[in-house]
Amino acid sequence: MSPQVLIDGLIAGATIGLGAIGLTLTYSILRFANFTHGDFLAWGAYLTLTVSGFLGGLLAGLGIGEPIGPFSFGWGLPLSLLAGAGLTIVLTLILDKILFGQLRRRGADTIIIVMASFGASMALRSVLEFIYTANPQYLTRELQIAQPVGFGMRATPDQLLTIAVTALLVLALHLVVTRSSTGRSMRAVSENPSLAGVYGIDVQRVIRVTWVIGAGLACVAGVMSGLLVQIRPYMGFDLLLPLFAAAILGGVGSIPGALLGGLIIGLAEAFTVQIVGAEWRAGVAFVVLVLVLIIRPTGLFGRTV
């Protein structure tokens, strides 16, 4: 087995980890397993793709459409990503306003909200398929050559960039949650929303902040996956089980846990592809999930189930 497995696993795991962080935050603060989260990744990727379609011509006209340094994309992509993330955030806030927020206000049971998210996820995914068709799309047409990075491993500049971006985002978010007053409020709401109100915390605001963070990270993860693989309407659905498994493995509510969970799932998938065969890749997350539920249902850094 070649050491390449390690780097392949890390790269896939970074995407899963970023997605799982958003999922674990909404899970611990809004208190429901959100089945639409995978589709936020897909929507983020498609929205970014659409913006970059408009922007590409514009930037090429300005003469700055060329790829940046060693990467496969020009300035259009980072700019489109910002816009795409903004649009994904708007999408989640609208969804919360017309669906999840309504159900919360009526005091609906958690499981009803989970079911609504399941229905919404099917609808969101199918809307993508209707607009963009089921054919895969690409954020860049440039081909990249993998460079040696030591220990017999190779990676493309794009792949290394995704790892670096993930590390930076997770570090920044970890600092926000542990040090800032917003982070403190988020932890308080996740422990006891009604007591948070007594303490003077505006719970609805904290919920909006959570959607903003979750949707923003989902968009970045979707674009990373789109950059390294491809964009399809079902990409979010295919990532959903790995996201859940990573969030539960890391311990619901734990940001470092979600990242670590994502990396472990990414590595396990890469090893499975090498040892058992690529056709079983999608089953890895399920095996991990079952093992966690049997051995340690609270996850690595979790508090309670």
Partner: peptide, 27 residues
């Protein structure tokens, strides 16, 4: 495995088994 845990763990696990069995049917 899941019924004694919080209600949405059953949802996630059944979602997972659907994917795992689908793979088995195919492979």
């Amino acid at each position: 495995l899941t019924i004694r845990m919080r209600s949405d763990y059953l949802a996630i696990t059944t979602f997972g088994i659907a994917i795992a069995l689908q793979l088995c049917f195919q492979n």
